[in-house]
Design a binder for these strands. Structure first.
Lengths: 203, 203
DNA sequence: CCTACCGATCGGTAGG
DNA sequence: CCTACCGATCGGTAGG
């Protein structure tokens, strides 16, 4: 073949093009929404021609699936680690808040997490079922944390609605948080903890 | 003309087709998102041919604009009324929560409110500016309510972040509230009030 | 991964 | 408000 390229030589420093596509797709799905994002948008963002992403993914839907999977995996891992840290109920809860907000608002994870939250409805039933399984497991983790807080006498109500209202306060931060704003992720987590638990002791 | 129809005779009972389109568009924008909703979806939902909605609206974007305007008008009217009811700070606050949730979750307003919350980004800059103006005014109303609660000694913190966390808990209800669920809108409003103000007195 | 392309669908319009 | 249609764009593919 004329003009063959040396494929084997670049293995080590070869950038992961598939991961590039997932990142670009995540950013665009977050910014514009899944339906308003075109394959050409994604391809352009990683300097490819419009047909080339299909070398890595068999469909646009599969790109969404990859983004959502990444979001689920990252947030579950981060929050589970905090949940199992063995600290006091209060410290554990605060660590979970921080972990969740880090994924939601931090530069590494926010596009994946936001796409998970807002674009999952465009998944097909099979992929959606995976999201539902994740959600159930994730919510159980939080419910347990609330239960521990109640047992420790730190909150009065650990009902499901309490958890839902809490998740709302958490997840809505995506709509207003700005990295260059006056509040850090840490500060927001602390304020929310005080909100739920009641006045934090001021030493 | 052959087969002419008696137009004048139906004026009184003539359904408002424009309003029908706005309602159908609102429902579809809420369910599927603006970009994933086609003119053919909307036309079909009101039993029209695909070109006919353009007799009432000059573009799909204009339909979104109408839906969002309806959402802003309805929620502002309902919450402003509660805010100016002249009741005590606590009763006023609870009435505002109920009014906001009624618009967000009730069958008359939810599609408009949800589209306002989630699809406004697809508006052009001019229409978006109207939404920003509305938002500022609306947020000021809530900030004032929090200020009144603080003055009455019912809450410790009436900062902006408090308001944002509260709005998050409120607006996220769209994601989980079901009309046939175990909690009524009224109950959710009361629970949220207790959350913010602290334990409600149990007589 | 690019070139070249395709069928389907989309928002929108002319003319009645 | 319908009929009939249009140009543009979309997701996706064959073949290299």
């Amino acid at each position: 073949m004329a003009a063959s390229r040396n494929r084997a030589a670049v293995t080590a420093e070869e950038p992961n093009r598939r991961a590039d596509i997932v990142r670009a797709a995540g950013r665009l799905f977050h910014e514009k929404g899944y339906s308003a994002t075109t394959i050409r948008d994604i391809a352009g963002a990683v300097d490819m021609q419009s047909g080339s992403p299909f070398y890595h993914f068999k469909s646009k839907h599969d790109m969404l699936r990859a983004v959502v999977l990444e979001g689920m995996s990252a947030i579950n891992k981060a929050v589970a680690k905090a949940a199992n840290s063995g600290k006091s109920p209060r410290a554990t809860f605060e660590a979970m808040l921080r972990a969740h907000l880090d994924q939601l608002l931090g530069s590494e994870g926010r596009d994946f997490a936001a796409t998970l939250l807002h674009e999952s409805r465009h998944l097909d039933p099979e992929a959606l079922a995976e999201v539902v399984v994740f959600k159930d497991r994730y919510e159980t983790m939080w419910q347990q944390a609330l239960k521990d807080l109640k047992r420790a006498g730190l909150i009065a109500d650990d009902s499901k609605v309490t958890r839902l209202l809490l998740m709302g306060a958490l997840n809505w931060t995506v709509q207003w948080y700005r990295p260059d704003g006056s509040k850090s992720i840490e500060q927001i987590a602390r304020q929310l903890a005080g909100f739920v638990i009641g006045k934090p002791q001021r030493p």
